[in-house]
Amino acid sequence: MATVESQGRAPVARVRRLEPAAIGAVLWRELTVFRRYWRSTTFSSVLEPTIFLLAFGFGFGALVSRVAGYSYIEFVGTGVVATAVLFSSVFPGLFTTFIKRRFQRTYDSLLAAPIDVEELVTAEVLWLALRAGIYGMAPLLVAMVFGLDPAWGMLVVPLIGFVTGFGFAAFGVTIAAVAKSIDNFNYVTSSVITPLFLVAGTFFPIDALPGWASTLAQFNPLHHCVELVRDAVFGFQLGPDLLHVAVLVAFALLMWRLAIWRLRLRLID
């Protein structure tokens, strides 16, 4: 019986995991869609940090001249990079993933072709991470207009934004895979994203917080992004910065696997 069955069988083609052709096709799709709306995305990515810098820079800057050894504009200008990275990764991760999965059924159409969920998630997250890395530079450029001195270390900032954005985009994809409706995102936005964003050392140093809160902030990946960006701009400190990198990479890998697992459960029944 087994021999009869095996007669008509095709030779087993080698299938590798994470095939570049599959990931490349999805990246091409994203890039093509992006060409239709890059103006609005770029507009808000530049305007948002400008508003933060103006509001906090002039508002708080009038009250506090120096924070943690920096002028307030330097402190906020570098800190807001993490905000830009977070917003440009987690929100598209949440919303566009949910829309493509639930309403457009884009993922159903793709998965009928030779691509698996692992490749699909990798491509989607890679795309958002690339975008986040680039848009993370916007606050620095704006801050330079307001007096931040350029530094060679700024060239590393897109890479920091990429790794951080990878983790948060994958986090967004995970939630979008679990959520039953877009309304569910409110829970995550208020209980997770807002605290992460506020208690990251962006607008005020976390050591100004009560002990328990600043300890908790150590577990906030965004805090490590903020610190790493500041060190890139004002001077690296080997030991602490290696820890920041390690936390960001670990967060990205963990979220990546989590996103693949949850989206597979949702798309394959």
């Binding site: 052709a21 096709a25 799709r29 093509t32 869609v33 457009q104 884009t106 159903d108 793709l110 072709a113």
Partner: peptide, 18 residues
């Protein structure tokens, strides 16, 4: 489940690549 934001040709190109 077409990509409604893309053109006809772009829809087909995504799948030709896939």
């Amino acid at each position: 489940n077409l990509d409604f934001e893309l053109t006809v040709r772009q829809n087909l190109t995504v799948f030709a690549r896939l």
